[in-house]
Design a protein around this nucleic acid. Structure first.
Lengths: 202, 202
DNA sequence: TCTGGAAAACAGACTGCTTTGTTTGGCTGA
DNA sequence: TCAGCCAAACAAAGCAGTCTGTTTTCCAGA
């Protein structure tokens, strides 16, 4: 009658359930903050029983770690995609900064990352995990400068400018938690770009 | 005999108790992180009963708010003192940045501030409080540039550079929770100063 | 100056709630 | 049948806020 049985393979079921949980984990961290992100809330957000959650992720720490791993992968992908999108246009430092800046504006990835980084200060396991993610992220941002045609000396300076930009943007993201004013952010970004331009155009 | 009774005035008793609690609050946030800073832990750290804590601070939120207010005041004082200390030497942008940078290295004030700022994103009351603190802090940092003899046009640029520095340093503080490498930090600071020098020396 | 009650400061127990991890049992695809 | 998947109940622990009782300071009136 009504029940058309479409058997779902176990492997796929597992994959779906994990994805829903990881997704919900980031959602809850984003909405409630790191401190108030509890497993019951995550399960409710995901529409999953707590039994299912504990089956796939026995401890809360394992769930959070998996979510952050997944997050890092998605973020990396996002950066790469954004680079590929601007394949045609000229490669300038400004274009790179614009790309990083826009990627940084994505709440879901950046805000959860900041929450995790701050929490990692007092959590050794989390710290080790994020240290790896962070090194990868910074390195890939620096490497983006390789496409700019530049002599080795200025290339190093450009890469340093990019790295500094990353940290500055992170500071602005934290700032955003306190004042969320798009215009203010935009102005500051423009000032930053002007400063970098002046510095590198000697 | 043995018990020389020196009655302590209520006013002073209150002041002492409050100070111990506020101090312990920052200690616990620093050591355990925002999420795990509970009132029992704070009381234990302060060597105070929970009854006393609830007497002076009926809710946890009121305790945290008071501690952050106190922190902001201390931080302001610290900056002013540092400025006064270098009264004799010449006022340059570099000297100002050095001062801000050193003040930023103080765990007790900065790390607790970062924890609070991130938590404030999902806590409207905390957010309002920190928004005020932050505006005051940034403004006072900008005002520090007034002592530098400079024409109005470059003065504005110097102030912008200071503000950008503040956000950059905050990004580095967050970074510090993940990698705490003094040399790395120092190198990055030097690169930053070089960049600013290049930008403003046109 | 002395004194007795009011008010404040403090201590500790208790309540209701939330959280995390475990366990028990039914269900489904292999 | 059997192993993995999932749901719900359960146990232990921790937390915030309230309440009761004790000690200390304050202050007004004799």
């Amino acid at each position: 009658m009504a029940s058309e049985k479409t058997p779902v393979p176990n492997e796929e079921r597992t994959e779906r359930m994990r994805a829903r949980l990881l997704d919900a984990t980031l959602d809850v961290i984003l909405k409630e903050g790191w401190a108030k992100a509890s497993t019951p809330k995550i399960c409710k957000q995901a529409g999953v029983s707590r039994g299912a959650q504990t089956h796939h992720f026995p401890t809360k720490a394992s769930l959070l770690a998996a979510a952050l791993d997944w997050r890092a992968g998605q973020y990396e992908k996002k950066i790469v995609e954004r680079l590929a999108a601007g394949e045609g246009q000229e490669r300038t430092l400004r274009a790179l900064l614009d790309g990083i800046w826009e990627a940084m504006l994505d709440d879901r990835f950046i805000q959860t990352g900041m929450e995790a980084m701050v929490a990692a200060r007092t959590d050794p396991e989390l710290r080790a995990l994020l240290a790896r993610h962070d090194m990868d992220a910074v390195r890939s941002m620096r490497d983006m400068a390789d496409d700019i045609g530049a002599d080795p000396l200025t290339l190093a300076r450009v890469k340093d400018a990019i790295e500094l930009s990353v940290y500055l943007f992170r500071g602005l993201v934290v700032q955003r938690g306190v004042h969320n004013d798009p215009k203010f952010k935009r102005d500051l970004y423009d000032k930053w770009c002007a400063l970098v331009d002046d510095a590198l155009a000697d």
